[in-house]
């Protein structure tokens, strides 16, 4: 199930935005921190194959993100920064069910799986709601449900608490903490990653630290001058 980077970097328009790096990710809770534009989102997007590695290769549980792109997508769920752009069908439960469309499930099985995931996240009351009527916290949880329902091994969350108020921050953080999946969380909200097993710090397109949360966060504060 491990994620392996083998000399993998990323290039956009002829510019190396992430220097090649090699590492193995196997912990249950991994945080990614760094300034804006440091390469952390690019790194995360390489894991589910959205950004192909140049040079090098990336694999998830032995599956190559380029050659076995579709299977990798099934293993790695990705929650993007703007939850409002992730719910793409008008009604919440339809959006969640849509992710199961190609699984060959019956209507009843799809409905049951949808209900189960909504109940698990404590948002069963949102099932019939229209996506554009949801608040930021509700949208984030609905987006999480839509990804969880497909049963990924890994879950990558890009700034999950970014646009939320304190109350919703707490709610989303608790929900995330209770998940069985292995998590990779990109966050400016350092409190979210401080009890994780491992934290990666990116700076100017390089991996600047790969350490315990305490040490990585301390290094980050030095870099940021804060």
């Amino acid at each position: 199930m491990d994620i392996r980077f083998n000399g993998a970097g990323a290039r956009f328009a002829g510019r190396q935005v992430l220097e090649p790096l090699s590492l193995t990710l196997g912990e249950r809770r991994i945080g990614i921190i760094g300034l804006n534009g440091s390469g952390k989102t690019t790194f995360a997007r390489m894991i589910n194959g959205q950004v192909p590695p140049t040079p090098g290769s990336v694999s998830v549980g032995g599956l190559d993100t380029v050659k076995d792109g579709r299977q990798v997508l099934g293993r790695v769920g990705f929650i993007f920064q703007n939850p409002q752009n992730q719910i793409i069908l008008p009604i919440v439960k339809d959006d969640i069910a849509f992710g199961l469309k190609h699984r060959g499930l019956s209507k009843a099985e799809t409905a049951a799986a949808t209900e189960a995931v909504l109940a698990r996240l404590g948002i069963a009351h949102l099932a019939e709601r229209r996506a554009h009527e949801l608040s930021g916290g509700e949208l984030q949880l609905a987006a999480l449900a839509a990804v969880l329902v497909t049963g990924p091994d890994w879950l990558i969350l890009d700034e999950p608490t970014n646009q939320l108020d304190l109350k919703n921050r707490k709610r989303v953080a608790e929900t995330i903490a209770a998940l069985d999946q292995r998590l990779i969380v990109i966050s400016h909200d350092l409190a979210l990653v401080e009890d994780f097993e491992r934290v990666l710090l990116f700076h100017e397109g390089r991996l600047a630290a790969d350490d315990t949360p305490g040490k990585a966060i301390a290094h980050y504060r030095e870099i940021a001058g804060a």
Partner: peptide, 15 residues
């Protein structure tokens, strides 16, 4: 501009 992130979400979920 939202098109990119919406398309990324559609592709990431294998729709």
């Amino acid at each position: 501009r939202d098109a990119d992130s919406i398309a990324a979400a559609i592709d990431a979920r294998g729709f």
